[in-house]
């Protein structure tokens, strides 16, 4: 009975963990999703001057850097920008 259930849905503990990870990112930096979207648009515009990128599939997020202990919680901005063409034509 448990097995088909497992296939149907993700375990709720895993869901909680994933939700928290995303939630705490915005809590920690006090940065709204709207602002994050503006940053994303700006980055896309700048990079587009030099190469062709896939703006549809680019992702940016703010997360904490690795390491444990006090003081290691400085957030950093991760950007994952798929490049379509390195040499922008014209």
């Amino acid at each position: 009975m448990r097995l088909p259930k497992l296939f149907k849905r993700k375990a709720s503990g895993e869901v909680a963990k994933d939700r928290l990870k995303i939630l705490l990112i915005s809590d920690r930096v006090n940065c709204s999703p709207e602002m994050l979207d503006l940053i994303k648009q700006d980055i896309a515009r700048v990079i587009s001057r030099y190469m062709m990128i896939d703006t549809e599939n680019m992702e940016i997020q703010i997360s904490k850097t690795g390491g444990y202990g006090i003081g290691s919680k400085n957030p950093s901005l991760y950007a994952n920008i798929p490049i379509l063409d390195l040499h922008k034509s014209s």
Partner: peptide
């Protein structure tokens, strides 16, 4: 029992998220 079922975050998950 809930952790075993996957319906509760593990101790490691919580420690990892809060990193203290």
């Amino acid at each position: 029992d809930m952790v075993k079922r996957g319906d509760m975050m593990t101790v490691e998950d919580v420690v990892d998220i809060l990193s203290v």
